[in-house]
């Protein structure tokens, strides 16, 4: 498991006139959670579809576990697409067994795994219900099980948490992190940067079919430094609006987030605020959010 789990080498794909993915290279290391991030239409889903062999790239090469994809490699992948559903009239247990069989997992171990997973997502009592009787959130958890029922070495999740309530998001997030601890490799695609920030080790930022950054989340955050300040204060508005000190100001409900201008010092800002007579409730140096990094990177690239 020391080699690269998923490797893309200058992969391109277009649909007619439209280029979905352009000259994309990336490497997913084993045992890591790899975030494929970007806004809608950036080419995330197309990239994933090429990895799981649903579409073939126009040019470039893809290797999984060090080889070209084939039926055997396919059985080691678990895939939860963004477009997902269940057979409406089929019982949950039959459904999960069917998906396991499609991954060449047969016999008794399937039954025990079904029970284990249903217990884990707290749906054991729904085992013999038809999926049409389940709520949307429950269905989504069953869909998640279909992608892990065959114990895959590589799990690919496309927007896995969309539409889930916070409790279930937390539940699935814990499961994903458990899988990572068990040595599985996970590719995680989302446009919700806050979610990615909490789960991913490595990230790849895509925008308009092209990669704009790839690397570990830690590295990118430290490279940006601590150049943002969270401020809660009364008065001092004129200071925060000074472009020499603050390049960007975002006001939230009870506090503001100020991105320091190039060359500006946080200490200077604090002194100016006190001098202006503002009453300060909070003044804290913070890391830039992934969202901020993304926006900065996109602006830099254009």
């Amino acid at each position: 498991m020391s080699e690269i789990t998923v490797k893309l080498d200058r992969v391109s794909k277009s649909f007619g006139e439209f280029t979905a993915v352009k000259e994309l290279s990336l490497a997913v290391r084993p045992g890591r959670v790899f975030g494929l991030l970007g806004p809608n239409g950036a080419g995330k889903t197309t990239t994933i579809r090429m990895i799981v062999n649903i579409t073939a790239p126009d040019s470039g090469s893809i290797s999984l576990f060090g080889r070209k994809i084939d039926a055997e490699v396919q059985d080691r992948i678990g895939y939860l697409p963004e477009e997902r559903g269940l057979y409406r009239r089929m019982k949950v247990v039959d459904q999960l067994r069917f998906f396991a069989e499609l991954k060449n997992v047969h016999g008794k171990q399937v039954e025990s795994r079904i029970d284990e997973w249903l217990a884990r997502v707290k749906l054991s009592e729904w085992k013999n219900k038809r999926s049409m009787e389940l709520s949307k959130g429950m269905q989504q958890k069953i869909q998640f099980i279909t992608s892990v029922i065959h114990d895959p070495d590589l799990l690919i999740l496309d927007e896995p948490f969309s539409g889930l309530d916070p409790i279930n998001v937390e539940l699935l997030k814990e499961i994903v992190l458990d899988l990572k601890r068990a040595g599985k490799t996970i590719i995680f695609s989302t446009h919700q940067m806050e979610v990615a920030e909490r789960v991913c080790d490595d990230i790849c930022l895509l925008n308009k079919s092209e990669k704009i950054f790839e690397g570990s989340l830690r590295d990118i955050k430290s490279s940006f430094g601590r150049n943002s300040v969270a401020v809660r204060c009364e008065g001092g508005d004129g200071v925060l609006d000074d472009p020499a000190l603050v390049s960007k100001l975002v006001r939230h409900a009870d506090e503001a987030q100020a991105l320091l201008a190039a060359g500006a010092d946080a200490q200077v800002l604090l002194r100016r605020l006190i001098d202006s007579g503002a009453v300060i409730g909070k003044f804290e140096m913070i890391e830039p959010s992934l969202n901020d990094i993304f926006i900065t990177k996109v602006t830099e690239a254009t």
Binding site: I54, Q74, Y79, E83, G85, Q143
Partner: peptide, 17 residues
């Protein structure tokens, strides 16, 4: 059409030709 209407097709295609 079933898998298209229920949107299962994509899950299936990562497992079966």
């Amino acid at each position: 059409i079933e898998e298209k209407e229920t949107r299962i097709a994509e899950i299936l295609f990562s497992s079966v030709k």
